[in-house]
């Protein structure tokens, strides 16, 4: 069946089955920026924002979120128009293989939108559902701090 969803601020129709997770529904409809890692809600590679909050899309049944705002990493910035946070990830060397990056970026984005000047501890808690198996976490946390610093020094609001 084909059902309407609000993804990245646009109305989209997704072809899906009633037993599919949001992850399956998104990837089967070309939102391949949402990555499939463990499929058990442990790794965070499939993170999307649901009404602005990070969730594991592999742990959400698609049918239950039809009227909610869904944001994938392409909803905050693209290759040609990257978000400040995505630029910081690149500058800090916080993406090696890049598989965890969409989830890391979205979890960080949600944190900074709510709390533009987080402590290191608050960053650790916000990223506790996202695993990285190659870059390590130091550069990722640095990238979040770097973004917070840029927001502060340029008096910017997280968009």
């Amino acid at each position: 069946m084909k059902l309407p969803f609000k993804i990245n601020n646009k109305q989209k129709h997704l072809e899906l089955l009633p037993n599919e997770t949001l992850l399956q529904a998104l990837r089967n409809n070309h939102f391949t920026e949402v990555k499939c890692g463990c499929n058990e809600g442990e790794c965070g590679a499939c993170t999307v924002l649901l009404e602005g909050k990070p969730v594991n899309s592999c742990q959400v049944l698609a049918m239950s979120v039809q009227e909610k705002e869904i944001t994938t990493v392409k909803g905050i910035g693209t290759l040609y128009t990257p978000h400040l946070l995505q630029k910081s990830f690149a500058e800090a060397g916080a993406d090696q293989c890049g598989f965890c990056s969409p989830g890391m970026v979205l979890a960080s984005y949600s944190l900074l939108k709510e709390n533009p000047q987080p402590t290191r501890e608050e960053i650790l808690v916000a990223l506790d559902g996202n695993l990285c198996r190659c870059t390590g976490y130091v550069k990722i946390i640095d990238a979040v701090e770097m973004t917070a610093q840029k927001l502060h020094s340029n008096k910017l609001v997280m968009e």
């Binding site: 809600g41 909050k53 990070p54 969730v55 742990q59 979890a107 916000a126 506790d128 559902g129």
Partner: peptide, 8 residues
């Protein structure tokens, strides 16, 4: 649980 799971 983790932050994304606590949101669900």
């Amino acid at each position: 649980a983790s932050t994304p799971l606590r949101n669900r």
